[in-house]
Simulated scan of single mutants.
Amino acid sequence: MNQLNTAFTLFLSLLVEAMPFLLMGVLLSGLLLFFVDERKLIAAMPRNPLLGAIVGSCGGFLFPVCECGNIPVARRLLLQGAPTPVAIGLLLAAPTVNPIVIWATWVAFRDQPEIVVLRVLFSLSIAVFIACLFSTQADLRPLLQPSVTRSRLIKSESPVGSLWQSKPAQPERKPALLQSGSFLLGQPEGPLRMDASSLQGSVATGKISQPLPDKLRLFLENTIQELRELGGVLVIGSAIAAVIQVGVPREIIVSLGQGPVTSILAMMLLAAVVSICSTVDSFFALAFSSVFTSGSLLAFLVFGPMIDVKAIGLMLSVFKPRAIIYLFALVGQLTLLLTLIINLYFS
């Protein structure tokens, strides 16, 4: 009974901690959808993979959200047809490379400023490398969820330029309500699909009036819809994280943290299990600073915001499971390599 109470308390704490940042990400996502000229936005994004990865990885300074809020923003960018390196860089680096998290890390590790600098550098390096790696994939359709793929295929026919190297055959058209996604009912010409291409095209052709009050109404409806979709996934992810925290004693994880390699692996596992928001995880890591090496503390601070149990559920709204496993493996290997160098040569 005590374990059940503990799991429920952890579940509520994770949910309460994450929900404001999910709401912030959904609001930013809606702003991109309704109030930003997507053609100008996409045209302004660099097409060079390296430059696009760097710009996307630094996007946290414009969208200072944690790992629960950056996923809706990255998904919206992909839906709008943004270059892949920009979206992947934002997805991985924004939870760490943003002014709120940098300031919180500085407050926690004021006596160890190298932790702050290395956390930002390692997060940027990993995000840029993986974003460039994804840009080498000529066709991302096998890695993306069908809803994201369909929207990007629509964008590939826009004047901005093709995002796929080969143009696929046109999919068979189905009645609107037989397709997956969200729709506005009660429109004069039938249900209207709630995605960037349909909505902005409808505004341009006059199907939706352009006055600000109407845009605000649609913005609110879109926010509620995305909160229902992503919020449900967040609830499931938080429940899984709470069960794991109760079922796996932390003493077992901590007991592994003596060696240069095992300490890193233990802190990476701990980061994935506890699923703490990136804005406060530095204070949690500070509690282990007298026991664990600097490299293992960095592993916790770098790996956790990119991959944790709570965020995996949200990532399933963008990527297929195989792509998430791919991301998980890449982030884990790069984090282990960089932090092991710190343990072996600078500790």
Rank of each mutant, 00 (worst) to 15 (best):
S13M: 08
L14C: 07
L15Y: 04
V16R: 06
E17T: 10
A18P: 00
A18M: 13
M19V: 15
M19T: 12
M19G: 02
F21Y: 15
L22G: 01
L22T: 02
L22P: 00
L23V: 14
L23S: 04
L27K: 04
L27M: 14
L28E: 00
S29F: 01
G30F: 08
L31N: 05
L31T: 13
L31V: 14
L33I: 11
F34R: 14
F35W: 12
E38C: 02
L41K: 02
I42R: 14
A43N: 06
A44K: 14
M45K: 04
M45Y: 02
P46V: 02
P46K: 12
R47V: 07
R47N: 10
P49V: 10
P49I: 09
G52L: 15
I54V: 15
I54K: 06
I54R: 11
V55N: 01
G56L: 00
C58V: 06
G59T: 00
F61D: 05
F61P: 00
P64R: 04
V65P: 00
C66M: 09
C66V: 03
G69K: 13
N70M: 05
I71N: 00
P72D: 03
V73D: 02
R75H: 06
R75Y: 01
L77G: 06
L78N: 01
L78K: 09
Q80S: 15
G81S: 04
P83W: 08
P83G: 11
T84P: 02
V86W: 11
A87D: 11
G89H: 09
L90R: 04
L90P: 01
L90A: 13
L90E: 00
L92H: 10
A93C: 11
A93Q: 12
A93S: 15
A93W: 01
A94G: 13
P95M: 12
P95Q: 05
T96Q: 06
T96I: 11
V97S: 01
N98S: 15
I100V: 15
I100D: 11
V101Y: 01
V101P: 02
V101W: 04
I102K: 10
W103L: 12
W103E: 05
W103M: 13
T105N: 08
T105M: 09
T105Q: 13
A108Q: 14
A108V: 12
F109A: 11
Q112R: 14
Q112P: 06
Q112F: 11
P113N: 06
E114Y: 15
